[in-house]
Design a protein around this nucleic acid. Structure first.
Length: 823
RNA sequence: GCGGGUAUGGCGGAAUUGGCAGACGCGCCGGAUUUAGGUUCCGGUGUCUUUGACGUGGAGGUUCAAAUCCUCUUAUCCGCACCA
């Protein structure tokens, strides 16, 4: 007989729903705990990655609840985004209908897995009551000068027909559709995340509960570098060009300069020069080079002389200015010094175009010659050919030269970041409209808070071509100016969906508030998120944006915290046969099927048991059977022993050896499961429960039915059910009922172990000679080192093996081993 | 190139602080139950030339003792990448 997972799971899910079991409010009598999993995009169906993410979160939430915490555990939908719109283009479905029906389906699937969400707090970012406040967030940033529009050379995905943030371009391709990303000069909305670059970087230190991997990814992404800006006079003009360099110490080694071909000043620099035609041809060529080609390290460096010379600020030499494909427009000033001897890229470029290689730093005690060099020398050394700075260590020269530049007013120390401002406008329909209107009289006008939300219109046309559907929706575009009441046009760009997901964790604290995105008192109670759980793919984008939002809202006075996520767990992927599950490979295991066949509890148990949460998990059908078998084994034991359940406590004084052994197993398990759950080592927590079940079977099989010690068995059975309940809540509740309990298992107190039950008369310790095991003996655990040593010396085996040898020393580790060192 | 991981039986994994390597599970082998298969219960299962030796990707080192610490190295995965 197998236990009936289907009936049991439906029964308890219904009860939880009807009793509002997991609905929660602020309660200052209890410590709070905010358990959060990254909310899903409603693609249509739950996949195993979701099941894993939410199973981990549910165990955490349920475990904390049983430990007496007031647990906030919400769920919602990151429901704006391109797939809805693509479905509209492809199948003619309305993006809203498509989204809501997907949500309905996935909500059902989540409920079938028995997660302990407070469904009353469910949010969907595509609903007006939510995006009203996404627009409010935009307004706040706008009012504080952190949202601005500028013409910029931006990433453009031709297939998605929209711009993309820097973070959404992966290897020169669109993160979503993988098509090659181009560049366009467009007027776009940005959030000034760069204002927070230093703080976002500094505060990474505060993120003690985050994985190092994520912290280092963010550090690299922010990419702080220290250097200097230097002004170079243009020969024959009063104007200057400014470069950024991290190596001002190499300034005397400059043999040429380079400017990005797309640089706005290029036009002026090449106009009327002998080389103009050549330059124009080069610019055209570079424009046709794809972003991937341009950014690949192994792409050959190419350039052309601009016809312009710059004047070296120290030597007064005339230095040729080149246009070259290896200089990035949007980092630093878009102009760099070419120091062939001390930078590998410059070295290659100089070799190709036969430009001078000037050594200005020598490795200590050496005398390199430029004609012998096969690669640039980028390490530390002693300055030479650098005028007054000769003989200095180059590290010191960086400071000295920067200082001199500052004194002369032709340069300055400068910190640069790799992080760019966050491009948030999208030329798409299914997103939160940007609350801006354009009035002929008043210009760009922010929609006032009391006129939010700017409602996304329905019944727009989806052609998949040309402009955004919104810009062709006349009744949306034409409006009145909030300032002067005259005719005005709406901004037709919508916001990047990452804006919506940058503040949802705050909305969960107060999801029904119609006046404000949240009440400060409520976020003060619930924030920070104590445990955030999700995929590592969000290590940069979402997690950086959310940190930025929290800091900005903190500065505006809306929240007290300035980091949102106290602890972060990045769960591993769910694989099949060592590779990612994917439709094209046909190796997708559907959660629905598994729940149908074995039940939600088995699916959850397998996922938690098969691997530690942060590691990748290979789906294994026979191992799933093993988890199912274990639950049946537990079920049979509880069924068998249900009559033993009593309120009577075991009498520790009068137990048989077998009874003591069972108690030891039970309390040992309580100790280990608790410690393991505290450190999120759920796989070993489950294995500890399995060992306890094995001990229970041993006792059961070795004791006549009428000889069972009821209080001892009762203690074992109740602890077993309680400890299983965060992992497999349905079967646990059913067994709880089966043994006659009427209390609510979800808030049952987590068991505590009895130190006395763990005390044993004898333990096995190891006898070693020179670190090799030679015997094992049973001793009292209380023996001192001296007593242990004495025992070892009188041991026959040790005596035999050490005969005729010189005993140098004897190391005794209480409760572990004795090691005799001989020569 | 820079940054961060990972490497342990046939497989997933365990060993929290340096102290019995391989817990727990899968698989496999055997016993009991059964007409048989399946189920269930019990037992076994790192390798080998088995009174012992070897064994945590490889090579050194520190230590009475190393999967764990140090140095070097190989493989592999992930992130960033012409960032001046």
């Amino acid at each position: 007989m197998k236990y009936d997972s289907k009936t049991i799971e439906e029964k308890w899910q219904k009860i939880w729903q009807e009793t509002g079991e997991f609905d929660i409010t602020e309660d200052t009598d209890k410590p709070k705990y905010y358990a959060l999993e990254m909310f899903p995009y409603p693609s249509g169906n739950l996949h195993m990655g979701h099941v894993r993410n939410y199973s981990i979160g549910d165990v955490v939430a349920r475990y904390k609840k049983m430990q007496g915490y007031n647990v906030l555990h919400p769920m919602g939908w990151d429901s704006f985004g391109l797939p809805a719109e693509n479905a509209a283009i492809k199948h003619g479905a309305d993006p809203a209908d498509w989204t809501w029906s997907n949500i309905d389906n996935m909500r059902k699937q989540l409920k079938r897995l028995g997660f302990s969400y407070d469904w009353d707090r469910e949010v969907a970012t595509a609903k007006p009551d939510y995006y009203k406040f996404t627009q409010w967030m935009f307004a706040q940033l706008y009012k504080h000068g952190l949202a601005y529009k500028k013409k910029s050379y931006v990433n453009w995905c031709p297939s998605c027909a929209t711009v993309l943030a820097n973070e959404q371009v992966v290897n020169g391709k669109c993160e979503r559709c993988k098509s090659e990303v181009g560049k366009k000069d467009l007027e776009q909305w940005f959030f000034k995340i760069t204002d927070y670059a230093q703080r976002l970087l500094d505060d990474i230190e505060k993120l003690g509960g985050w994985p190092d991997k994520v912290k280092s990814m963010q550090t690299n992404w922010i990419g702080r570098s220290e250097g200097a800006e230097v002004d170079f006079k243009i020969d024959g003009s009063d104007e200057t060009l400014t470069v950024y360099t991290t190596r001002p110490d190499t300034i005397f080694g400059v043999s040429y300069m380079v400017i990005a071909p797309e640089h706005p000043l290029v036009e002026k620099l090449i106009a009327g020069k002998e080389t103009e035609a050549e330059c124009r041809a080069f610019i055209k060529k570079v424009q046709h080079q794809s972003e991937i080609m341009r950014s690949a390290t192994d792409t050959e460096k190419e350039g052309v002389f601009s016809g312009t010379y710059l004047i070296h600020p120290f030597t007064g030499d005339k230095i040729p200015l080149y246009l070259a494909n290896y200089v990035l427009l949007d980092y630093g000033t878009g102009i760099v010094m070419g120091v062939a001897a001390h930078d590998q890229r410059d070295f290659e470029f100089a070799k190709k175009y036969d430009l001078p290689i000037r050594i200005v730093i020598q490795p200590e005690g050496q005398n390199m010659k430029s004609e012998d060099m096969t690669e640039a020398f980028a390490a530390e050394g002693i300055m030479e050919n650098s005028g007054e700075f000769n003989g200095m260590n180059n590290k010191d020269a960086i400071k000295a030269i920067t200082k001199r530049l500052e004194e002369r007013g032709i340069g300055r120390g400068k910190v640069n970041f790799r992080l760019r401002d966050w491009l948030i406008s999208r030329q798409r329909y299914w997103g939160a409209p940007i609350p801006i209107v354009y009035c002929d009289k008043c210009g760009e006008v922010l929609v006032p808070d009391d006129q939010l939300p700017v409602i996304l219109p329905q019944n727009v046309k989806f052609t998949g071509q040309g402009q955004s559907p919104l810009s062709e929706c006349e009744e949306f575009v034409h409006t009145t100016c909030p300032k002067c009441g005259g005719p005005a046009k709406r901004e037709t760009d919508t916001m990047d969906t990452f804006v919506c997901s940058s503040w949802y964790y705050l909305r969960y604290c107060d999801p029904h508030n119609t006046e404000m995105p949240f009440d400060k008192a409520k976020t003060d109670y619930w924030m920070n998120v104590d445990q955030y759980i999700g995929g590592v793919e969000h290590a940069i984008l979402h997690l950086l944006y959310a940190r930025f939002f929290t800091k900005a809202l903190h500065d505006f006075g809306y929240v007290s915290c300035d980091e949102p996520f106290e602890n972060l767990l990045t769960q591993g992927m769910v694989l099949k046969d060592g590779t990612k599950m994917s439709k094209s490979l046909g190796n997708v295991v559907s959660p629905e099927e598994i729940v149908d066949k074995y039940g939600a509890d088995t699916a959850r148990l397998f996922i938690m048991f098969a691997a530690p949460p942060e590691r990748d998990l290979d789906w294994n059908d026979t191992a799933v059977e093993g988890s199912y078998r274990f639950l049946n084994r537990v079920w049979r034991a509880v069924e068998d022993l249900r009559d033993c359940v009593t309120d009577e406590k075991p009498d520790a004084e009068s137990l048989t050896a077998d009874e003591k052994k069972l108690r030891l197993a039970v309390h040992g398990a309580i100790k280990k499961v608790t410690a393991d759950c505290d450190r999120f080592s759920f796989n070993t927590a489950i294995s500890a429960i399995m060992e306890m079940v094995n001990a229970l079977y041993y006792y059961k099989e070795h004791t006549p039915k009428d000889g069972l010690n009821k209080p001892v068995v009762s203690e074992a059975v109740t602890s077993l059910i309680v400890m299983l309940s965060p992992f497999v809540p349905h079967i646990a509740c059913e067994m709880w009922e089966m043994i006659g309990k009427t209390s609510n298992l979800a808030v049952e107190k987590w068991p505590e172990y009895d130190e006395k039950a763990l005390v044993v008369d004898e333990i096995e310790i190891v006898l070693q000679i020179n670190g090799k095991i030679r015997d094992k003996i049973m001793i009292s655990p209380d023996l001192t080192r001296e007593e242990m040593t004495e025992l070892a010396m009188s041991n026959d085996r040790i005596k035999e093996l050490t005969e005729g040898k010189q005993i140098i020393k004897c190391i005794a580790v209480p409760k572990k081993l004795i090691n005799v060192v001989v020569k």
